[in-house]
């Protein structure tokens, strides 16, 4: 299953490269670089999991890949926020995430909670807040009339589908894994499906996007 996930990540990265001429003069260049980073990270972790360094995989995910994921999207929504209020909201989300990351390191290490990682769940929730504030601002402007050709719309939809859909999964992961293995297994398949859906929406975004 995780190979299909890597395949979708690679497909979205390659699609971004194919449309490089369209995006090269915009901030979406960084999105393609981000996708390349995710693909590289996944491939490296996948490789390491079969070597003697397999105990480093979680470290790489928790300290590099996931923080970069969240921080990148906070930056993306900060760039797309047109009102001062929304920009401050995104900054607040980013700051709160960083604080939760620090709290995770100093207060929650070694303690088993309902959720896998306090900072991941906090980051996920705060990212959903940023996404929802983006949609509210988007729906009030004229851009909504051309939503099909707006890349930020497709990226946000993909993020919403994945992060909203998997919040209960990562939020209740220990509960599900320890006590409801069957539900956990089904939900894991759903998690992968939502991951594919997210990258598929990114691909659709690259194809349909019309730069201003």
């Amino acid at each position: 299953m995780q190979y299909t996930t890597i395949f979708m990540e690679l497909a979205s990265f390659v699609t971004g490269l194919l449309y490089w001429n369209k995006i090269k003069n915009s901030i979406w260049v960084w999105f393609v670089i981000y996708l390349g980073f995710i693909v590289t990270g996944e491939l490296v972790c996948n490789y390491l999991s079969y070597t003697s360094y397999n105990n480093k995989v979680n470290t790489i995910f928790n300290y590099i890949i996931i923080p970069v994921e969240f921080l990148f999207f906070y930056w993306l929504y900060y760039k797309h926020a047109s009102s001062k209020k929304n920009r401050l909201l995104v900054i607040a989300c980013c700051v709160l995430y960083l604080l939760s990351f620090i709290a995770d390191q100093y207060f929650f290490q070694g303690k088993k909670f309902l959720f896998d990682s306090f900072s991941y769940c906090a980051g996920n929730l705060l990212l959903l807040v940023a996404i929802l504030s983006f949609f509210m601002e988007f729906s009030k402007g004229n851009e909504i009339l051309h939503f099909r050709s707006s890349l930020i719309f497709w990226v946000s939809l993909g993020n919403l589908v994945f992060y909203l859909g998997t919040l209960p999964y990562f939020g209740l992961i220990h509960l599900l894994y320890d006590n409801h293995r069957e539900i956990f297994n089904y939900y894991t398949y759903l998690m992968f499906a939502l991951d594919w859906a997210m990258y598929l929406l990114f691909i659709i975004g690259f194809i349909k996007w019309k730069p201003k």
Binding site: L164, G165, L167, P168, G171, L172, L175, L176, H180, I183
Partner: peptide
Amino acid sequence: IVLIICIMTAV
């Protein structure tokens, strides 16, 4: 189970 169902429904 109720908690899981409630959260999923809310989502």
